[in-house]
C-alpha cells in the first residue's frame, strides 16, 4: 500500500462500501456479519493476527451480537454510556499479541465493557487521534496532484446547499448504502 503496509484488510458490513474499496483502493475486504472475520485474519497472518488494527467507526458502532448491540444501545439511550464501542472491542480482540490498536473513529466520553484485560495481557499499544490536518493536507494534496491518491469516487453525491439536510442524512448507512461512512455528499453553495 501507499505507506508500505504489506497487506491491508477492510472490514465493513456493507457490500457496497467493500466493492468501492476493492475497486478504488485495491486491498482485501471482509464483510462483517457474512465472512468469518477472525478466521480470515488469522489465516492471512500465520495465525497471529494483524500487526495494527485501526478502528474507524466511532460511537455509533454496530456489528456485534444481538445481545451486545441491545446492551450497548440501551446503555447509550439511558445516558449510562456515551459511546458504543463494538468495533473497538473487535479491533482489540483480533489484533495480534504485541500489536497496536488505533482509535480513529469519533468517541465522546465513556464506554462500558472495555476489554482492558486483552489490552494488558496481549501487550497491546493503544493509540488515538483526531486529525492533524495542517501537517498532512499539503502532503495529501501533492500525492493527489501526482495521481498517487485518487479521490473523485468519494464524492458520490453533489448537491446544492439548499439540499443540505438531505445531503447530510443520505450518508447514514440506514438511509442508503450508496456512500462510504465519511466524505459522501458534497454540498455546494448555490
Amino acid at each position: 500500500m501507499l505507506l508500505g503496509a504489506e497487506r491491508v484488510f477492510v472490514v465493513d458490513p456493507l457490500e457496497e462500501r467493500l466493492r468501492m474499496t476493492r475497486r478504488f483502493v485495491g486491498c482485501d475486504t471482509l464483510q462483517e456479519g457474512t465472512d468469518d472475520v477472525g478466521a480470515a485474519l488469522l489465516e492471512a497472518t500465520a495465525g497471529r493476527g494483524p500487526d495494527v488494527c485501526i478502528e474507524a467507526v466511532g460511537m455509533e458502532s454496530g456489528g456485534g451480537s444481538a445481545v451486545e448491540e441491545a446492551y450497548d444501545r440501551a446503555k447509550q439511550y439511558l445516558r449510562l454510556q456515551t459511546d458504543r464501542p463494538t468495533a473497538l472491542r473487535h479491533a482489540i480482540y483480533h489484533c495480534r499479541k504485541g500489536g497496536t490498536v488505533f482509535v480513529l473513529g469519533v468517541f465522546a466520553a465513556l464506554a462500558d465493557k472495555f476489554p482492558l484485560g486483552a489490552v494488558m495481557n496481549k501487550g497491546l499499544t493503544l493509540r488515538g487521534a483526531q486529525m492533524h490536518g495542517q501537517r498532512y493536507i499539503p502532503m495529501l494534496l501533492e500525492r493527489m496532484a501526482r495521481g498517487e491518491l485518487v479521490t473523485e469516487h468519494l464524492a458520490t453525491h453533489v448537491m446544492p446547499l439548499d439540499d443540505g439536510p438531505a445531503a447530510t442524512t443520505c450518508s447514514s448507512p440506514r438511509r442508503t448504502a450508496a456512500c462510504g461512512r465519511c466524505s459522501c455528499p458534497t454540498a455546494e453553495p448555490s
Binding site: E16, L141, M144, G147, H153, V158, T186
Partner: peptide
C-alpha cells in the same frame, strides 16, 4: 480532469447511482 479541485467524475461505479444529484 483530476486533482483535489476537480468536480467529481461522472464515472461512478456500477450500481452506485446516486439517489439525488443536482448538477450546476
Amino acid at each position: 480532469t483530476s486533482g483535489p479541485c476537480s468536480p467529481p467524475t461522472p464515472r461512478r461505479p456500477a450500481g452506485w447511482a446516486p439517489t439525488s444529484v443536482v448538477c450546476s
